[in-house]
């Protein structure tokens, strides 16, 4: 299953990507993060202790976490905000700790962690017009650091507001078959 979580408050790239992925007959779940009620992570530590693997905050994230836990690819679609993602998407990212593996491992000589399950591919799609080189580099580095810490594969893409459906279709192909 592929899970797409998008902030659609400033554009419809998330639904467009979901539509392109669905054309490949891949099992897909799409959430619009800006339409969900998701509270910020309060670092209570329960998901790595008392309720290991389960977040105790009862909100719409309880619909998202089961899908992420078993997915083969997670795709976050967001406007590029200060070289990162919007707060709608960041709330989802922060709460994903519940489906992470809290144990440590070593990759390329450094400590990393991982995700529960069989491992997943992790993609980010950033949308922004006239982004500076610093913004682009920051967005790509955020994905790279996320990918490392999750011990995941995958890549980041950046599109401008003028990008057409062909660009979306290409990214969908990469996510499904890449």
């Amino acid at each position: 299953m592929i899970v797409i979580v998008s902030d659609d408050s400033k554009g419809d790239y998330g639904p467009a990507l979901a539509e392109a992925v669905s054309q490949t007959e891949t099992q897909l779940v799409h959430f619009s993060a800006n339409a969900l009620t998701v509270m910020p992570c309060v670092a209570c530590g329960s998901c790595s202790g008392k309720t290991y693997g389960r977040c105790i905050t009862q909100d719409d994230m309880q619909q998202v976490l089961p899908k992420i836990a078993g997915c083969r690819a997670l795709v976050l679609v967001s406007p590029v905000v200060f070289g990162g993602v919007s707060y709608h998407i960041k709330k989802i990212m922060d709460r994903m700790a519940a489906v992470g593996d809290p144990r440590y491992r070593i990759s390329e000589g450094e400590l990393v962690k991982g995700m529960s399950g069989q491992g997943m591919n992790y993609y980010m799609l950033g949308i922004g017009d006239e982004l500076s080189a610093t913004e682009r580099a920051a967005f790509l580095s955020l994905h790279e650091e996320n990918r490392k810490i999750m011990s995941a594969q995958g890549q980041a893409f950046i599109l401008s507001g003028r990008s057409g459906q062909a660009s979306i279709n290409k990214i969908a192909q990469e996510i499904v078959y890449g």
Binding site: P40, C41, A43, V81, F82, G84, V85, S86, Y87, K90, K91, M93, D94, M96, A97, L142, E145, N146, I149
Partner: peptide
């Protein structure tokens, strides 16, 4: 602030926005 998933927590991003 603390580092959550390689950057600041969502609530700070919300404040900056």
């Amino acid at each position: 602030g603390p580092c959550y998933i390689n950057t600041y927590p969502a609530r700070l991003i919300e404040l900056l926005e």
